[in-house]
Amino acid sequence: MIIGIPQSRAFKWSYRAYVTLFFIYLALPLATVCAFAFNDSVFPSLPWEGFTWDWFFGTEAPYIGVFHESPILRSLVTSGVVAFWVSVLAVFVGTCNAFLFVRHEFRGKAILYVLMLLPLIIPGIILGISILVFSSSVANFLEDATGLWFDGLRPGLILVVLGQFSFITTFATLVISARLQKFDPSLEEAALNLGATHWGAVREVTLPFLYPAMAAAGVVAVLMSFENFNTTLMLVGSDAPLTITMYDRLKLGSTPVLNAVSLLLIVVSALLGLVSLLLQKRKD
């Protein structure tokens, strides 16, 4: 905080007004989405027809709430399954990568590190189509060669998981590496001196030190997987995750049930985001 610098009163106030306006701009779309989840009207728009919980708990058409709307609930489960696998895979590979890049020196490390960062600069939609093209040609080749079916390589949940995993792993690697760099190697050496095996020392000393970062990476992976759209759009089959289902509804124009889903998503993702921050900030 800078003190002791003279600034005109008008400047100070206009600066403050600008900052206030900015935060209104940030909050406005989300606040609007939330507010219309409670509007007693079949369209998410004005006029305000009164307060209702129907878009959450309603059971009679057209007032069918989120908790009774089976397509949305089904896609929520699909999203959950996808997020689970993406998160498990990304944390596993991310942890291996962290050990590889922090602990080992080898030829080509710099190149491999840049390659590891590449998924960050590839637009999601291109990541999606490249995996789509590649897996389809592999599937065609295998089917021609063996005469069997390889449905796993056709658009569907397996490809969605792989597509999201392909770039979320980079984030997991960065989060876990940052923590591993802070680890004091002498702790591991002490364990070795006390007779631990190499793997035993890693498992009993290093990995517990990494748990908060691994958990944070897992939470970030779940968040990113849940809200991913671009990559998923290109790889999705018949089982659509939540964002795809909502997008299809949005194009058709829908009831405020979408607002209700959005409100739940905002609350859950804000909570998950805070959890991941707390996990990364934790000091010990």
Binding site: L28, L30, T32, E227, F229, T243, M246, L272, G273
Partner: peptide
Amino acid sequence: IPFWVSELVRTFGWMIL
């Protein structure tokens, strides 16, 4: 916080506005 929320929700908000 707005970044943690799905882009779809943010865009939906702007559509309503």
